[in-house]
Simulated assay, not measured.
Amino acid sequence: MALLSRKLLIPLLGLVLALYFYSGGDEFKPELLKGKRIIVTGASSGIGEQMAYHLAQMGSHVLITARREEKLKKVVAKCLELGAPSAHYIAGSMDDMVFAKSVVKKAEKLFGGLDMLILNHMGDSYYNFFNGKVDHVRKLMEINYLSFVTMTVEAFPMLKSTNGSIVVVSSIAGKIGQAFVVPYSATKFALDGFFSSLRQEFILKNVNISITLCILSLINTDTAVNAVGDVLRMPAAPQEECALEIIKGGALRLREVYYKYELTKIPILFRDWVPELLDSIMRSGFIVENLKNDSSLFS
């Protein structure tokens, strides 16, 4: 009992310190984004769409991308209505690395440079027990991970010249293993490993490009709610607020953004000290019988 108490006390003390440091720092001002040249991927709906609108209102030049061209046209039109000095789109799929590179090249052609690269897109996956299909894991890794790396490499010269920022939209599933999202979780862990390591190398090489990793809880996008709404006992946070917090984190060049904080940072603190307890709590949050088309592992 005493051992358990000590195990619980340490993360609680860590939480107090984390809350203290989180409350400090620079103040965000929308003017920080005025005139900035920004790419937002996965911007035809959800968080990406909302980020485009926030940036438009802040006076940023935006280039958005996703697969659905008609939806992108509407988002661009609204961005211009909201005050964006310029707004453009390019439609295509991020499982094609040639297309991923072409997005960055179009930004260079349109803007003559780049100040911020917001990587937000993700491939379609399922919410259920892992089905053992390795081809799906491979394709999801290409979209959710390799295209992020490809765009970062392609954008590096422009971002280096502007002391720019890379914003990587990830998930609590990229910090703590999650049931029913095995392929997705694997891609998010890969993002953490790549960009956290790259940040270290930037510092060692005196490269003044910031990398902000965004750790998100469940957000009320149509895709997420439709997939997990009946299975996960967790409130979904508003996508509009989430999008703004991501933008703030990138503008302030934060190392990581946690949203919602209590549903991301606190579980991570417990992960390292009482992992079995955390796992048990997480499993209790599922209504397994509500899984759609429930199937046995590897069936």
Rank of each mutant, 00 (worst) to 15 (best):
S5F: 09
S5D: 11
R6L: 13
K7M: 11
I10P: 00
L13N: 02
L13P: 01
L13C: 02
V16C: 07
A18P: 00
Y20M: 11
F21L: 06
S23Q: 06
D26P: 05
D26I: 00
P30C: 08
P30Q: 05
L32C: 03
K36S: 07
I39A: 05
G42R: 07
G42P: 08
A43V: 09
G46I: 04
G46E: 10
I47S: 09
M51P: 07
H54S: 11
M58E: 13
M58P: 10
S60N: 10
S60V: 08
H61Q: 15
V62Y: 09
I64V: 14
A66D: 10
E69H: 12
K74S: 15
K74H: 12
E81M: 11
G83Y: 05
S86T: 08
H88T: 01
Y89D: 04
G92Y: 05
D95N: 11
D96P: 02
M97W: 01
A100R: 02
A100G: 05
K105W: 03
E108T: 03
K109S: 13
M116D: 05
N120V: 09
M122L: 14
G123C: 06
D124N: 15
Y126E: 14
N128V: 00
N128S: 07
N128A: 13
F130H: 15
G132K: 12
V134I: 15
D135T: 11
L140G: 07
I143V: 15
F148E: 02
F148R: 07
V149D: 01
T152K: 03
V153A: 06
F156I: 00
F156G: 00
L159Y: 00
L159K: 01
K160A: 05
T162S: 09
T162K: 01
G164I: 02
I166S: 02
A173I: 00
K175A: 00
K175N: 01
G177S: 02
P183G: 01
S185M: 00
A186G: 03
T187R: 05
T187N: 03
F189R: 03
A190V: 01
A190F: 04
D192F: 00
D192R: 13
D192Y: 01
D192T: 08
G193R: 04
L198M: 09
E201S: 04
E201L: 08
E201G: 04
E201M: 02
F202T: 02
L204H: 10
N208R: 09
N208Y: 07
C214T: 08
I219C: 09
I219M: 08
A224N: 13
N226P: 04
A227M: 14
A227H: 08
G229A: 06
L232F: 12
R233F: 14
M234W: 07
P235N: 08
A236I: 11
A237T: 13
P238W: 10
E240P: 06
E241L: 15
C242H: 11
L244T: 10
K248G: 14
R253H: 12
L254K: 15
L254M: 15
E256R: 15
Y261R: 14
Y261S: 12
Y261C: 11
P267C: 12
D272M: 14
W273R: 13
L277E: 09
L278I: 06
S280Y: 13
M282R: 14
M282I: 14
S284G: 15
G285P: 05
V288H: 09
L291M: 05
L291R: 06
K292V: 14
S295D: 12
